[in-house]
């Protein structure tokens, strides 16, 4: 007993003398490693961070998979397409598909009309929606709730419930197939997803301080002057977001364009949707050799040419795209 306790004492004193500092530090060291791996209140742990990044990268890859698939397939030569060994890396950079797709899509002309058909209604829609949003945000009048309800209704009502009478009217007026069929609804604040843009501007104008406007009003400025000189410059970001989004949505909208423009203006997505037919007009199936037959690589080249302008816009202006939703205040409704 005595022996043992003396032994213990000596071991303990030896330990304190030689390892004391280390052992005392050990729990703290352990906490540090634990904190590094699993996180502390102040920062995320390594395990957690790595896990999140792995998940994000995997999901991001799945997300981009269709685009990668499209890009790679579109660069495959007819030989590569038939070769089962070639899956992800084409044996050569073959641009022949793009040359064909370029011709089939009639690219310069359809690109130009796509730009026209998306930018012009988008600018008009933006101007009109900003006026309406300003009116709703800055003035008190009876029936405002009803107007909000109706704006929401225009967002919900499917386009096919209102499009046919419009189409017949335009047909009667000889406007079918012209850009006026797209401009007129936008002019009345009934363009493609106008409700969203009215809400964007409502939110933007609501958050502006009213002091400047009141000062201008006291100085005798008219309401229109106040809107144009004070409110509009302060809401420039909302205008940019609105024009960009509206342009992209008009570009991608095919239901309206097919009904209103078919037989007249040809946009890129419209031409893409009858790609097979257009291809066979240019390269009649019986007359071309087997390598010039329509294959998925040519189709996907056409698809890629179709989204290329949008991709360029997106990468140049992406800040505006991703910040847009925060600006709209949709989340805070």
């Amino acid at each position: 007993m005595n022996m043992r306790s003396r032994l213990q004492d000596s071991i303990l004193s030896w330990r304190d003398a030689h390892l004391g500092g280390f052992l005392a530090r050990l729990p703290r060291q352990r906490d540090k490693v634990r904190g590094l791996l699993l996180g502390t209140r102040a920062r995320y742990g390594l395990v957690f961070t790595v896990l999140v990044y792995v998940l994000l990268i995997v999901i991001g890859f799945v997300y981009l998979f269709p685009l990668l698939f499209m890009l790679i397939t579109s660069l495959k030569s007819p030989g590569d397409l038939l070769n089962p060994m070639v899956q992800w890396v084409p044996s050569e950079l073959y641009v022949g598909n793009y040359v064909k797709a370029f011709r089939v899509l009639d690219y310069p002309s359809t690109l130009l009309s796509s730009i026209l058909v998306s930018v012009v209604p988008s600018v008009i829609q933006t101007i009109v929606c900003s006026l309406v949003g300003y009116g709703l945000a800055r003035y008190r009048f009876p029936g405002k709730h009803l107007i909000f309800a109706l704006i929401l209704a225009t967002f919900i009502i499917p386009p096919q419930n209102t499009i046919i009478p419009q189409m017949l009217t335009y047909r009667q007026l000889g406007l079918l197939g012209t850009i006026w069929a797209m401009i007129l609804p936008a002019l009345g604040g009934q363009g493609f997803r106008s409700a969203v843009f009215i809400l964007i501007f409502y939110q933007a104008f609501l958050s502006l301080p009213q002091v400047l406007e009141e000062a201008a009003r006291l100085d005798g400025a008219s309401e229109m002057t106040i809107f144009a000189r004070i409110a509009v410059p302060a809401a420039i970001p909302a205008y940019i977001v609105s024009v960009i989004f509206s342009t992209v949505w008009y570009w991608n909208e095919t239901y309206l364009t097919v009904v209103f423009l078919e037989g007249g203006i040809q946009t890129l997505p419209m031409q893409l949707s009858k790609f097979v037919q257009a291809y066979e007009n240019l390269y009649p199936p019986g007359t071309v050799n087997i390598l010039d037959r329509l294959n998925e690589a040519v189709k996907l080249s056409g698809t890629f040419l179709n989204i290329l302008p949008l991709l360029l816009i997106y990468f140049v202006l992406q800040r505006w795209f991703v910040e847009s939703v925060e600006r709209t205040g949709i989340a805070g409704e």
């Binding site: 309406v132 009116g135 008190r140 107007i147 046919i164 009345g188 604040g189 009934q190 309401e223």
Partner: peptide, 30 residues
Amino acid sequence: QALQGYAFVAIWIVGFAFFTLVPLVQTFRY
């Protein structure tokens, strides 16, 4: 103030009548 507000919203009300309400009723008649 109400009149000024209506002036700003008027274009939408007219647009709603012509491009949503009338076509909606018309589609129902069809």
